[in-house]
Design a protein around this nucleic acid. Structure first.
Lengths: 112, 112
DNA sequence: AATATATACATAAATAAATTATGTATAAGT
DNA sequence: ACTTATACATAATTTATTTATGTATATATT
């Protein structure tokens, strides 16, 4: 993703949240959306993205729908009900992570 | 560290920042400080902490000073000059990570 | 006095997520 | 004609962390 290691572990959260917002998306579209939103600061690599999508699907969090645009394949993913629940959990975990890290690195932001 | 994967990649940032604030600390003290600051939400494991300290030392970011308290050993770590510079970089990376993740998961926080 | 918990270090094997390197193939732009 | 963009995929490698284990002293509890 980037030179920093911090994004490790964040990929499923990103995918789930984007699908939560956009109803259905395909892999390449996800990479472009992430690039756009982060102004190019974060670029998903295919070697990370596709295995992550397959894993989320295997976990029952995503449904897939293959479609053909012209002669090219697209695999649209959307959240299952379990996927929607998982998204809520992942977002809560992210907020918790950010709160804790802020408390750790910024002495002014001690937890209450 | 925790059930969530998000902390992966954050350990060196945490160590460097704590040493930046506290001048010198030993391993066990770091685990306790992290537990205290995060109200027990984040507990560093020894299997992660000690190798991380050794690595930072090997990279020339930390200096070590062994001391004996009673009959028990303590290894105090402190930032080198390079370590202080690295701390600044790591903190900037963390802020960038948080900004990007906020933009990704919270449509209201789009980057400007 | 015996036992459990806390302090304090360490390392090795296994796991898991991502990087890097490839590969295939169609569509569009120069 | 050639390059870049679109669109998927997977295998080998790397790396950080988890889990498990080990040693040893100090303090608190029963």
């Amino acid at each position: 993703m980037k030179s920093t290691n911090l994004y490790k572990g964040s990929l499923s959260t990103i995918i789930l949240k984007l699908l939560n917002e956009h109803d259905k998306m395909y892999g390449y579209e996800i990479t472009q959306k992430v690039k756009e939103i982060t102004k190019g600061e974060l670029q998903l690599t295919e070697g990370a993205l596709y295995p992550a999508l397959h894993k989320l699907e295997a976990q029952g969090l995503l449904d897939v729908e293959v479609s053909k645009i012209g002669n090219r394949m697209r695999k649209y993913y959307r959240l299952t009900e379990a996927g929607t629940k998982e998204t809520v959990d992942k977002l809560a975990e992210l907020e918790s992570y950010i709160r804790n890290m802020r408390a750790l690195v910024n002495p002014k932001f001690r937890l209450e």
